[in-house]
């Protein structure tokens, strides 16, 4: 029987995976806005494919953070103070991005929309990079002292291996977004998104596969090698199904890619939650950083009822808005003059 602290490590990994899978594609849509959206109507098609769902997707990040706070306070405290500046950049970008979606159409002026498009684009490039960097940091470690505090400068989380983590999530989000657009739009945009997805996929997933390989080489266990093999296989399936025009299956295969990568990363991290690069005795571990058994029991009950409900009603949202959107569905701009 798994102990509760380990269970919560798995739940938190699942929240991060859910976040990467869900907001991955809506980041991708925002990143590709200037690439695939040739005029305002096309850009509106793109934004509206994620319009009803992006906010719900973002909550996965908040819940991942909240669950870390409740289940592993020392992990939450050590990691987020350790990656202060990258996390700040993520927060600033997410602030702008959220407001941009809501405000973009509220004044009928090309300049107004162009400016918000820029905010959406920056707001979609920065967070996946930052989140990838933060996750790579928690797997690869920080120079922690015995109190679990970061030693060294504000930039000690910026290393080539953590930057690779940033690129990994950026690359995945790009492909995921292109495939999502191919799945959710119709007409010319769909073809363009598919073609771009096919062209990008092999190169864009290289950093992700590279990161998993690196982590496996440094910290991996025997079983974490299995998803390591599964990830490129799933990526090949995704490419093949996309080439065949089966966008839904390609999208699901990309889900398998990120799930396999997350398995390797978090599997290799366990039983640490945040290794110290200075002295392994100072590493934060699942057992050492966790909350008391009572607290873990409480949040386990909450998650046991709450999390399945989330899956049901978020799934229902995707069902309600399952229709493909194309330029002919977009109403005329409607804003007060």
């Amino acid at each position: 029987m798994m102990d509760l602290a380990t269970l919560w490590f798995c739940i938190i990994a699942a929240f991060w995976l859910g976040y990467l899978f869900l907001e991955g594609f809506d980041f991708g849509v925002g990143m590709l806005l200037p690439v695939l959206g040739r005029d305002d109507t096309e850009r509106r098609v793109m934004i509206n494919t994620i319009g009803p769902v992006w906010d719900g997707n973002e909550v996965w990040l908040i819940v991942a953070g909240g669950a870390m706070f409740a289940a592993f306070p020392a992990w939450y405290a050590g990691l987020f103070s350790g990656v202060y500046l990258p996390l700040l950049a993520v927060l600033l970008a997410l602030i702008g991005r959220g407001v941009a979606f809501e405000y973009r159409g509220k004044v009928d002026s090309p300049r107004w929309r162009r400016n918000w498009d820029r905010v959406i684009m920056i707001g979609s490039w920065v967070p996946p990079f930052g989140v990838g960097l933060v996750l790579a940091t928690t797997v690869l470690g920080l120079p922690l002292d015995a109190d679990g505090d970061r030693l060294g400068s504000a930039f000690s989380a910026l290393r080539w291996d953590t930057l690779l983590g940033g690129l990994a999530v950026v690359g995945f989000s790009l492909v995921h977004g292109a495939v999502f657009l191919a799945l959710k739009t119709d007409g010319e945009l769909r073809h363009r998104a598919r073609a771009l997805g096919l062209r990008m996929l092999p190169a864009a997933l290289v950093p992700l596969l590279g990161l998993t390989l690196l982590v496996q080489a440094r910290e991996g266990a025997l079983w974490t090698a299995v998803p390591l093999v599964a990830a490129p296989a799933a990526a090949a399936v995704a490419w093949w199904r996309l080439a065949e025009g089966r966008e839904g299956q390609a999208f699901a295969a990309l889900g398998a890619v990120i799930a396999a990568a997350a398995l390797t990363l978090f599997g290799a991290l366990y039983p640490d939650v945040l290794p110290s690069t200075l002295d392994t005795a100072d590493s934060l571990t699942v057992a050492g950083a966790s909350s008391s058994p009572y607290t873990l029991q409480v949040i386990t009950w909450v998650a046991a009822f709450g999390a399945p409900a989330v899956l049901v009603y978020q799934g229902w949202t995707y069902w309600v808005f399952r229709r493909r959107i194309s330029t002919r569905h977009i109403p005329k701009a409607h804003a007060p003059r």
Binding site: D55, G66, F69
Partner: peptide, 24 residues
Amino acid sequence: GDVFGAPLAMEGLVAFFVESTFLG
């Protein structure tokens, strides 16, 4: 964290998910 984190996590899981999903 042992005490304070729980209501925060509950807020996310029980309330904030509902809020953002049903707002959409």
